[in-house]
Amino acid sequence: MGTAPASRDVTSYGMGLAAPLALFFLVFFVAPLLQLLWLSLHNDTAGLHWGVGQYLHFLTDPFSLSVLGSTLLLGAEVTAVCLVLGFPIAWLYQRVGPRLQTVIILIVLLPLLTSVVVRTFAWIVILGRQGIINATLQSLGIIDTPLKLLYTQFGVVIALAQVQMPLMTLPLITALGRIDPNLDDASCSLGAGSWRTFFRIVLPLSLPGVIAGCTLTYAAAITAFITQSLIGGGQMLFMPMYLYQQASTLQNWPFASAISIIFLLAVLAVVSVFTTLGRMSRGYGGA
């Protein structure tokens, strides 16, 4: 700064331009979250008595803990399904011509931009008692009575996987595009088979993309309120609906705040684990 004030760097702009958004975030994002934290540390709804009663309530209540557990598990299942289905799409993308590439990208992209309610509604039509799956199986004579697919864990996982698939596939396409295709040929010409090359060369080198995709998919899957509630129905309760019920229906804001904070911390923990893995994998991939 002090060395050459005359030759100002023309390629960058002052930090002052970030001030409006920073201020906006301070007032409307950071302050509300701090207030959430503040209220969660009170034992009464009026916010007069400090204490960790809300957290104790959550952490000693088997029901609340099971809701948290099933939410985190749901995220893991959806992420796994997205990875298994998304990776081949990214792989195929790298092997087809530019026209087909555009087609694939647009197929992947469309759900991302289509309303979540619409996408979820589509799964109600597919999984319902008179839906495609049941109608097909019945007309083929495989089953007599309709299978219960809606309001099941299976239904929620498959619907969420479809809804969140773009978040997994896009980073994978980017990561696979960065791998030097010569490595593939080299591995094959040195005698490694396609499967071995895939698991020993392609997969490790694409780890940054895998981890980026998993982070986004996981975070989105566990907070996907609409899909969880419409496909899961009343019997299955996950953290977002639990939070909403406590806040809106029961008006128990301190407990809802504690649920929010615990949920926030759980998401942050998962994201930081993924980020750490990502940093390690970059070192691995670059070596």
Binding site: L21, F28, A31, Q35, A219, T223, L243, S260, L264, V267
Partner: peptide, 21 residues
């Protein structure tokens, strides 16, 4: 990081927080 954090944090928690504010 601050500007990107709404993408990862559960938006429902933010919605409740904003209502309270």
């Amino acid at each position: 990081s601050l500007f990107m954090s709404p993408l990862v944090l559960p938006a429902l928690a933010f919605g409740l927080a904003a209502l309270m504010l």
